[in-house]
Amino acid sequence: MTRDTIAVFRRRPPEPTPAAGSVTTERVVAAPAVSVQSLSKTYESGFQALRRVSLEIRRGEIFALLGPNGAGKTTLIGIICGLVMPSEGSVAVNGYDILRDWRITRSLIGLVPQELATDTFETVSATVSFSRGLFGKPPNEAHIEQVLRDLSLWDKRNDKIQTLSGGMKRRLLIAKALAHEPDVLFLDEPTAGVDVELRRDMWALIRALRDRGVTIILTTHYIEEAEDMADRVGVIQRGQIVLVEETAELMRQLGRKALKLHLKTPLDEIPTALAHHQLELSADGMELTYTFTPEASDRSGVAHLLQDLSAAGIAFRDLHTEQSSLEDIFVDLVREQS
């Protein structure tokens, strides 16, 4: 082995051999970005934060972890990042075990914590350079500049952290997490306390990171954001993963649509000719609501309803449709579980 290949070897350890079973028909796929196996955590107080959680995060995806407060989101992230010791089970990052190969996995991960924990008297650029060094990377001024520019902090680089606003501190934490060029980025409630415009910029940055191949795992309370941003969604409830699904698929399966028809003249009741449709009549008799799932729409369909309405001589002034949001789905799921 030449000196150069040794250097390369040290910088980037070889891909571990994938375990049997992770072989697709096409080719051997790389190990998932994060693989959680039967992970449990019981704190000293006796509180069981995680119960046999298993989860796979694919490389290069944006994964949104949703769940009510105290469901175990932060514990799960804490274990993967090395802040919390697991009680049982295992976690691998890019195929490396977080306990056995902790140096490798931790250098692969960037963490943006929920709390705005920042230094006070240091300057912005000093604290970001500190993060890079801490994670074992040699200084790289160009990279630090790029990260600070991406997060609109370049103008603030010589300012003390204590002079920054809450939203800037949040971005600073992201800059620190990106300082060592991580493969996997954890964002715990990244947009809490960030105004709308900045939030939009932040999402643009996160999408750009994903396009560069960074895997992103985030928790959020803004469910519309998860709906817009995430490739897949996982729901955690009382320490258990209750659902993992492609966001689009989840919306298709669980997202109900409602067609609302504003009638020209009020109805006393729903005519028998229309009884086989899922219809509801408002108390004043002026509005008919037709509920359907997008899947079923192909078969029973809005078209049939409209034909039947016309046949029954019911005229309407206006119509609009509403789609249930991920938030509605989430609330339904959590209610079902409890």
Partner: peptide, 14 residues
């Protein structure tokens, strides 16, 4: 006290 210890604990430093 400030919570910034998270970074040291999550870093690849023994």
């Amino acid at each position: 006290f400030t919570g910034t210890i998270y970074e040291v604990l999550s870093a690849p430093v023994s």
